[in-house]
C-alpha cells in the first residue's frame, strides 16, 4: 500500500511538471522492465530497445494513468506488449530477409559479466524462446518474478483459471525440452 501511495505521489509530482519524479520512477522500475523484456526476447539488445520504448510510453501516458491498476502491473503490461510486438517484427523480418536469420543477438553484447552465469542464463533463455510468447509471458511472471495469478490476470487480461493451465503447460513443455537436451 505504501508503494502504491508512493507511486501516486510521484505520478502527481511528474504531472505537475516535476521531471525528477519521473527519474525516481524510472530508477525504481528499470530493473523489472529490463529483466522482463530480456526474458521475453531472450537477448540484451532487444531488451535494451524495449526499455527505451517503455520509458517513452510511460513519459507520454503517465498523465492518463488513473490507478485502476497498480503502476507496476501497468508497466509489466506495456513491457509484455512491446516485447511480443518486437518478436513478431523479428519473425517477419526473418521470413523476408535474405540475410542469415540465425544471428546470435545474445553474443553481440551483454550486461552479464561473469562467464559461467552468462552461459547458464543464455541456456535457460534459449529454452524459454522455444515456447509460445503468451505462455512464456505467464511462465516468466509466475516462475521467475513470483507474481500471483491475480496480478498476472491484471497484466494479461486473462482469467486466473486459464493462466494456471497456461503456466502448467509451459512448465511441462520446458521440462520436456530440458530433458531432451540431457
Amino acid at each position: 500500500m505504501t508503494e502504491i501511495n508512493n507511486d501516486h505521489d510521484l505520478i502527481e509530482r511528474f504531472n505537475d511538471g516535476d521531471e525528477s519524479a519521473f527519474n525516481e520512477l524510472v530508477r525504481k522500475y528499470q530493473h523489472r522492465i529490463y529483466w522482463h523484456a530480456r526474458r521475453m526476447t531472450g537477448n540484451h539488445l532487444d531488451a535494451d530497445e524495449i526499455v527505451q520504448e517503455v520509458l517513452l510510453v510511460m513519459y507520454k501516458k503517465l498523465k492518463d494513468f488513473k490507478f485502476r491498476s497498480s503502476l507496476y502491473t501497468w508497466i509489466y503490461t506495456i513491457t509484455s506488449t512491446r516485447s511480443i510486438n518486437l518478436l513478431r517484427r523479428r519473425s517477419i523480418q526473418e521470413i523476408f530477409s535474405l540475410q542469415d536469420s540465425g544471428v546470435d543477438r545474445a553474443a553481440d553484447s551483454d550486461i552479464i559479466k561473469d562467464f559461467e552465469t552468462k552461459e547458464e542464463v543464455n541456456r535457460l533463455e534459449k529454452h524459454l524462446q522455444k515456447i509460445p510468447a503468451k505462455q512464456r509471458e505467464v511462465f516468466v511472471l509466475r516462475a521467475i518474478d513470483g507474481l500471483s495469478y491475480e496480478e498476472i490476470a491484471e497484466i494479461t487480461g486473462k482469467s486466473v483459471g486459464g493462466l494456471k493451465s497456461n503456466y502448467f503447460h509451459a512448465l511441462k513443455k520446458i521440462t520436456a525440452l530440458m530433458q531432451n537436451e540431457e
Binding site: W35, D48, V51, I112, V121, L124
Partner: peptide, 20 residues
C-alpha cells in the same frame, strides 16, 4: 528451481545507471 535463479542475476550496474 533453475529458473528461479534468474531472478537474482548479477549484471553490470553501469548499464542501469545509463538508462535514464
Amino acid at each position: 528451481n533453475q529458473f528461479k535463479k534468474l531472478k537474482n542475476v548479477n549484471a553490470d550496474e553501469n548499464y542501469f545507471t545509463n538508462i535514464l
